[in-house]
Amino acid sequence: MSQPAAILDPTGREDVNQNSTLAPRSTPLSGATVALLDNGKVNGANLLEALGRLLQETEGVGELRLIHKKYAGQPLDEHELKEVASGCGFVVTAIGDCGSCSAATVADGILLERAGVPSASICTEQFAVTAAAMAEVLGFAGYRFVRTRHPVASLTSEELDGRARQIAPEVLQIWGVTA
């Protein structure tokens, strides 16, 4: 059974925030606090922690803050958004591997960018269409997110380390650390 998700407005006249501006990329990654936003899906936190450890080794990332979302299927509410955005320099969120949670994962990335924090959302390729549609619904057509091979839920910890190494370069690109 899938998680609850927001009902879309069928009129096209909703007050869409047509804001496709990314957060400023001004904070150096070395020593920065990175929020690992876990939506609670299987292996989401494991993948994020593997990625966090890797970035500590390779990029000198500072503290890792693992944050668990209450519901995978809905974007962060205003309170959660503030909590995540405050006190961290970068966010990475995972794992969008179902219809509603991939949409919400991308929505979280967009909301966090608008709140001023460079953010990378990770979805599996199977749900890229849904994630892209969500970005459009939110007025951010073409929002860039990380697409990784499906599935993630069945990977072992060694395989997750490998997956983290595959994903890391694009996360750094989205964060604006590398070109």
Binding site: I7, G99, S100, A103, T130, A131, A133, M134
Partner: peptide, 13 residues
């Protein structure tokens, strides 16, 4: 029928 982002994605696909 309420439409969510997931259903929208499946139709657009």
């Amino acid at each position: 029928v309420p439409c969510t982002g997931e259903q929208l994605g499946r139709f657009l696909a």
